[in-house]
Write a protein that binds this DNA or RNA. Structure first.
Lengths: 276, 276
DNA sequence: GCAGCCTGTGAAGATCCTGTGACCGCGGCG
DNA sequence: CGCCGCGGTCACAGGATCTTCACAGGCTGC
C-alpha cells in the first residue's frame, strides 16, 4: 500500500524560492528565531526533489521559475496536493492570482510584503495540520483484489495482462487506491486528478468512474473495486462479488433495499454495498 | 470529533458579511453563476447562529462588526475551527493582518479587491481544509455501544458491518453522537443537520430518527441508542437493553419494529425517559 | 378517566443523484 | 486528408433518498 506519509512532524521545514536576496535574508532570520528549519532554493527544483525534502511549506516566487512557471506550479500542486504552497510575486494581475489559486496554490502574496505577514500566512495555511502527506504514491505498486496498479508503467494489470487504462483513467484509479479505503468526495477527486477546482455540475468524475468500472469488470469480473456512496462520492476497495445463486446480477448494488421487513439473511455478510 | 460545521456537503454555502452593498451584489451574482448557495449577513451574527447555518465558508468585513471585531473573530475561530474564514477589510496594517491570521483567519484580503479573486481565495481555503480534514478524518471515529461512527466513511458500523445509513441518516447520528449525551431539541437538531430553520410542524427529524432506530436495532439489537424525551427532543446514548428476566422485553419505546404488530406488553416502566 | 398535544408509523410523491450511451473537438498517425 | 483514441459534455432514464401526509397509539395535565 502506498500511502501516507510522514505524519510525524519534526520541526516545520519550509522551502523558500525567491530571487530577492535581501527579502530572503530577513525572512530566514525571522524563521530562525521562530525555530523553523528552512531551505533556500534558487530556481525551479524538480518536483521529485521537493517530494524528497519532506517540506512543511513551500514559498515560491514564480518570476524565479521562468517561463514554465505555470506548468511548474500545476505539477507541484498535482504531485503534492498536501503541501502548503504560497506563491510570492512582484506585480501580478487579478487573473494571474485567480489562476494560481485555482490551480492549487493556497495563498498568493504580492511584494512588497512584510516578512512577518508572509510567515503568518504560511502558518495560517499549514495551521491545522503538519502532514506533508506526499501523495507521492509515485513509485510504488498497489495490489488490490486481482489487480495491480503500477505507477512506473502508468498502467494497471489483472493477472499480468494490461487493463489498457488511458492516462486519466490510470490517474483516477491510482488516486482512489491511494486513499486507503476512505470515501472521497467528487470535488476532492477532481482536484487531485485534474489538478484544479471542479466546476459546479461537472460530471467528468462520474464518467471516468464508469469507464474504469467497465474495464475493471472486463478484466476481473469476480471483484468490484469502486463503490458509490450516494450523495457523497466514491470509495476504492477490492471486494469479491458475492453472487447469490441467481444468474445475472452484474449490477452489484441491488440486494437489500433497507428496512424491508421481508428479505434478510441472504448474504451472510455484507458484501458490496456501502451506503447506497 | 470535529464539529459539524459543514460535514461534507451539499452545495457550498457561503456567508458574506460586508458593508459594501455594491461589492456584495457583484459577489453574489458571481456566486450564483457558480452555483454556490449564499447568505448575506449585515452585522455580527452570534456564533451559535453561524454554527446552525452549516456554512462552507465565511467572509467577514471586520469594519461591519464594530469595536468587538477582534474578540468576535477570536470567538468564531474558537467555536468553528473548521470553518474556512476569510477576513475582508478596507485599509489594514501589517500588524492587523498578522494578528488576524494568527488568531485563526485563513486569509485576509484588502479592498479594493476583485470579486473573482476573493472567490478564488475562498475556494483555495476550502480546498485546503478539505484535504486536511480527509487526512485527519481517520481519527474522527466515535464509538458507542456496539457501533462505530466513522466520519471518513460517511458511515456507521456494527461489528464491522456497515449499517447502510444514507447521507442524512449519517449526519443525524453523527450530530447526535457529538452532543455528548445531552438532550437536543428538534429545532436544534434540524438546524444543525439541515442547515436552516425548521418549519413549524415539520416532522422530518422524527422520521429520520425512526429510520435510524430501525437500522440500528437491526444491526445491534441489544442496545438502544436514541432516546426520546417527551416534549423536548432526543438524546443519544448507548444503553444496553434492559431485559426483565421474565417474559416481556422492556417496553422501551423503541422496542422492536420487527415482529411489530403483535406485542404490546404493558410497559412495566419507562426505561427510556430520563428527566424531561 | 378524558381531552389534547406529541410521537411513532407507513406509504405516496416530489426531488435529487448517478449510470449510460451518444456526440464533439482535438491531436497524432498512416 | 481521413481515421482513431481520448477527454470532456449532454440529456435522458432509472433509482435512491428526502418530504409530506394522514392516522394511530402514547403521554400529560386536569
Amino acid at each position: 500500500m502506498t500511502d501516507v506519509s510522514n505524519g510525524a512532524a519534526q520541526r516545520a521545514r519550509i522551502a523558500v524560492s525567491d530571487g530577492d536576496t535581501g527579502f530572503v535574508q530577513v525572512l530566514t532570520k525571522r524563521l530562525d528565531r521562530l525555530g523553523w528549519e528552512h531551505v533556500v532554493l534558487t530556481g525551479a527544483v524538480p518536483v521529485e526533489r521537493l517530494v524528497a525534502m519532506r517540506l512543511g511549506a513551500f514559498v515560491v516566487d514564480l518570476a524565479l521559475i521562468g517561463p514554465d512557471a505555470w506548468s511548474y506550479l500545476e505539477k507541484v500542486c498535482r504531485e503534492l496536493p498536501a503541501l502548503p504552497l504560497v506563491v510570492c510575486t512582484g506585480q501580478s494581475t487579478v487573473a494571474q492570482r485567480v489562476r494560481g489559486l485555482r490551480l492549487g496554490a493556497d495563498d498568493w502574496v504580492t511584494k512588497p510584503c512584510h516578512p512577518e505577514e508572509l510567515i503568518a500566512r504560511v502558518e495560517a495555511v499549514g495551521r491545522r495540520r503538519r502532514l506533508a502527506a506526499s501523495v507521492a504514491a509515485a513509485a510504488d505498486t498497489v495490489v488490490a483484489g486481482e489487480i495491480e496498479i503500477r505507477a512506473d508503467q502508468f498502467q494497471a494489470f489483472a493477472d499480468g495482462r494490461s487493463i489498457d487504462l488511458t492516462r486519466r483513467e490510470f490517474e483516477l484509479i491510482q488516486m482512489l487506491a491511494a486513499a486507503g479505503g476512505r470515501v472521497l468526495e467528487r470535488e476532492e477527486i477532481y482536484q487531485r486528478v485534474w489538478g484544479y477546482a471542479m466546476a459546479h455540475g461537472d460530471r467528468s468524475v462520474d464518467v471516468f468512474v464508469r469507464k474504469l468500472r467497465t474495464k475493471l469488470q472486463r478484466a476481473s469480473p469476480k471483484w468490484t473495486y469502486i463503490h458509490t456512496h450516494f450523495g457523497v462520492g466514491y470509495r476504492f476497495a477490492a471486494e469479491p462479488v458475492v453472487e447469490v445463486a441467481s444468474r445475472e446480477a452484474s449490477g452489484a448494488r441491488s440486494s437489500d433495499p433497507g428496512p424491508a421487513p421481508a428479505r434478510r439473511a441472504a448474504p451472510a455478510r455484507k458484501p458490496v454495498r456501502a451506503c447506497a
